[in-house]
Design a protein around this nucleic acid. Structure first.
Lengths: 118, 118
DNA sequence: TTGACGCATGCCCATATAGGAATATGATGA
DNA sequence: TCATCATATTCCTATATGGGCATGCGTCAA
């Protein structure tokens, strides 16, 4: 077997630096393909291909606008990555225990609050 | 050009599910290769290969112990991933703004405290 | 209708796997 | 020294790229 498809999951999709760059750019707002082409300094077909991969894993969404196609970030697709790597944070973060305490307090407050939210 | 090498960076290294599994297992503590072989249900050579990739990006460290080789997690290598994906957290986390506020308060406290730490 | 513009696809090539099988390497015990 | 255990490395194969280039397709202006 060869390596897994880049469209297999978000981990594979963002393993490519260019695709992370694209997401970083889209974090600033919706953009047409040509914008990305110029900002990345890549050929238009390659950009379209990268966008396709990102689309297939749900990391971006498209919207037609005249002859342009506006791409928009969908950060939610990155949550699995965050969830996975989050558990390793305590490995390097010395302040993690302190943050931990704070979060516990937050939870406490919320519980005491009763169900007045959401 | 083909896809980037898995050893190019941690993103590529952990794009492979088996390697994430290995890291998850090592999160529980140091383990010899054979342990991983049995836990993963993979052939020994494949495990050694995955471990090599993880070693080359610094995600694990080895220590000889008799005829065994004990592998140990080095979560610090995952920090770049966490740093990158962290910025997208606000996309899906509704509580992010609240946490933000709390962290700001922490920073305030620290600043008011004067240099009494580290 | 025609031409131009903005994107998406299809094709070709070089490259890097991931797994399977066989073998090399290191350390240990008799 | 020799057999054995625990790992690492090598060789081989099928597969999935990512970039370059040409082309197809939908939309808009004249």
């Amino acid at each position: 077997m060869a390596r897994a498809a880049t469209t297999a999951d978000t981990f594979n999709a963002v393993a490519e630096p260019r695709r992370r760059q694209i997401l970083d750019l889209l974090a600033g707002g919706e953009r047409p393909v040509n914008d990305l082409v110029h900002l990345l300094g890549l050929a238009q077909p390659q950009v379209s291909k990268h966008l396709r991969v990102l689309r297939e894993v749900g990391a971006v969404q498209v919207r037609g606008d005249g002859r342009q196609r506006l791409y928009r970030l969908n950060g939610h697709a990155l949550k699995p990555i965050h969830d996975w790597v989050k558990n390793y944070e305590r490995t390097w973060s010395e302040r993690f225990d302190r943050l931990d305490a704070v979060l516990d307090e937050l939870k406490q407050e919320e519980d005491d609050d009763g169900g007045g939210h959401e």
